[in-house]
């Protein structure tokens, strides 16, 4: 009899073979151990792929994905997506994606962020004119304070030394903003407003992009420990442009108006 080629065998395993073809293989399996082994291997592979990926079906979806599927009336409470992020001319496939990249940070990264905070604080040594230490805490100083106070992410300046990313209300009610220091050594962090100034719960070195290209990072591509810090504090959603402006005009103290929160598209 003719040997059974891989495509026929695969069709048999996948239930795609017509009845006479399947019957022919059924008959051959009875006395062809090598064929039986090939069939088993193909079945095993299929089963292993299911075992590898089916658990995703039971994972809870990240809130940012579920939020997109909320009815519009609910979206005013839980707006769909960050909207203050700088949007270039490259369209959804890159800009939007980069803007929201890695918002879902696994729990392990949260734990890692604690360790990295120590490294980051070491990196951000006292004496740096962009940070000051007070009561064992890091606070923004100088040009960083100015940028956090004044700069709107909705009005990005590609040449400014500090790029502002997301602004949002933290779970403790304070307003927090992510930022990137562009001049080397590039660093990124999270700043949360308080009466004593902008405290910096997380600061981290930023790895320059491959190929030594210009560092253009803002809210996108934050280091994982910064994203973890954001994730741990984020309640609801990041501010849109109107909310950001309203928060600035209120001195970063009051809850900004929710108007316009539904206009995320």
């Amino acid at each position: 009899m003719n040997p059974i080629d891989d495509e026929t065998l695969q069709a048999y395993v996948d239930g795609e073979l017509d009845k006479p073809g399947a019957a022919r293989i059924d008959a051959a399996l009875a006395h062809d151990a090598a064929l039986a082994r090939r069939v088993q291997q193909a079945r095993d592979l299929r089963a292993q792929l299911r075992a590898a990926f089916d658990p995703v079906l039971d994972e809870p979806a990240p809130a940012r994905l579920s939020a997109l599927l909320q009815p519009r009336s609910a979206q005013t409470e839980i707006p769909a997506a960050p909207s203050v992020l700088p949007v270039g001319g490259r369209g959804i496939s890159t800009t939007r994606r980069r803007a929201t990249r890695r918002w879902f940070v696994p729990g392990a990264a949260l734990a890692a962020s604690v360790a990295l905070l120590a490294v980051a604080l070491w990196w951000w040594q006292p004496g740096d004119d962009l940070v000051r230490m007070q009561g064992g805490q890091s606070f923004a100083a100088g040009a960083l304070t100015h940028a956090l106070d004044e700069t709107l992410a909705s009005e990005p300046d590609a040449h400014a030394p500090v790029a502002i990313g997301l602004s949002f209300r933290s779970t403790d009610g304070r307003i927090c903003r992510t930022f990137v220091l562009r001049s080397p050594p590039a660093r990124a962090g999270l700043a949360c407003h308080s009466d004593a100034g902008w405290s910096l719960p997380v600061l981290s070195a930023v790895t320059p992009p491959e190929g030594g290209g210009e560092l253009r990072r803002a809210a996108s591509d934050l280091p994982p420990e910064v994203q973890a810090a954001v994730d741990a504090r984020l309640r609801g959603n990041v501010f849109d442009a109107q909310q950001e402006r309203a928060a600035r005009d209120a001195g970063w103290r009051q809850l900004p108006s929710r108007r316009g929160a539904g206009k995320t598209r």
Binding site: P62, R64, L65, L68, L69, A81, I92, S93, R96, R97, T100, R101, R102, F104, V105, R265
Partner: peptide
């Protein structure tokens, strides 16, 4: 992370 970014784009 990449997969969920992809999902977000697909939903949008």
């Amino acid at each position: 992370a990449d997969a969920d970014d992809l999902v977000q784009i697909v939903l949008e």
